[in-house]
């Protein structure tokens, strides 16, 4: 490929990316716009005279919601890992009888609409008095990540060389010790990938939060933004500032872990 042709592609790629990311740019732009300029026509295309009043409002009002979301995300990661990593081990390496059926159930589970799950959980939580609790929301959010986690762990762990496991067995290691000392350390990247997605999905969840935690004392950031939009439609700079802050985990994920994101997506492809 000639250098001129490749330069041309880079330029075109930049244009495409700019078009695609325009809404993200616009969110940041609006978040820095003064309230008096919000209704200007035409709007400012660039925040020449930025204001941080929107962000001040975020730190004033949204810190508890951000903390709640962190807690829910963290709890969801733990629960997901605790359930899915051992299950992946059983399916991939211990040749669980009925493993095929279990895999099938997991695939079907991923197809169930969240709104249906939300109603089911609501009906269950009403009786158990778990509505409007952080724990209830952690459990509900984890249902998005657990099937994915099990499938990813199974795919990865099937690739662990059988000789290593045999060597461990000859040294007298049992199933648990093999899992802890060999399989888990080797699966570090899968653990990271599953954790990242479990956190991001819990952090981003709106449906479960808006149904199971509508009147809670501790509401997550997504619900907080939604309430903001409903109450206060003139302060779009504050709403967009909150949205920018709520996007930070996604940005971190992309910068720090793009490799693992790719791993998560291609995991299905490398399977067997």
């Amino acid at each position: 490929m000639t250098p001129t042709r490749s330069w041309w592609r880079t330029a075109l790629g930049l244009v495409f990316t700019a078009l695609m990311l325009f809404p993200v740019y616009w969110m940041i732009n609006v978040s820095l716009t003064r309230t008096s300029d919000l209704r200007r026509n035409p709007p400012h295309w660039f925040p020449w005279d930025p204001t941080f009043e929107g962000y001040a409002a975020v730190f004033d009002q949204q810190l508890p919601a951000l903390g709640t979301s962190l807690l829910i995300g963290g709890g969801c990661v733990l629960l997901t890992l605790l359930v899915s990593a051992p299950a992946g081990y059983a399916l991939a390496l211990l040749h669980l009888r009925g493993g095929g059926t279990l895999n099938f159930v997991l695939l079907v589970a991923q197809m169930i609409p969240a709104v249906v799950m939300a109603m089911g959980f609501y009906a269950v939580y009403v009786r158990l008095d778990l509505l409007n609790t952080v724990w209830g929301l952690i459990v509900a959010d984890s249902t998005i990540a657990v099937p994915f986690g099990v499938l990813l762990f199974t795919a990865f762990m099937s690739g662990i060389p059988k000789e290593m496991l045999q060597a461990a067995r000859i040294d007298g290691a049992g199933a648990w010790r093999t899992f802890r000392s060999i399989v888990l350390p080797l699966s570090r990247n899968s653990i990271l990938t599953v954790s990242l997605f479990a956190f991001l999905w819990a952090w981003s969840d709106f449906i479960f939060a808006s149904t199971l935690n509508r009147n809670g004392d501790l509401i997550p950031i997504t619900l907080s933004i939604y309430a903001y939009i409903g109450n206060n439609t003139t302060q779009w700079n504050s709403i967009m500032a909150t949205a920018v802050v709520a996007s930070i985990p996604a940005a971190v994920l992309l910068v720090v872990a793009q490799r693992y994101v790719a791993a998560g997506v291609t995991a299905g492809a490398v399977k067997d």
């Binding site: 990311l21 996604a250 992309l254």
Partner: peptide, 10 residues
Amino acid sequence: LVPWLLPLIV
């Protein structure tokens, strides 16, 4: 990937 990773409410 950004639009995919952003929370839907955002």
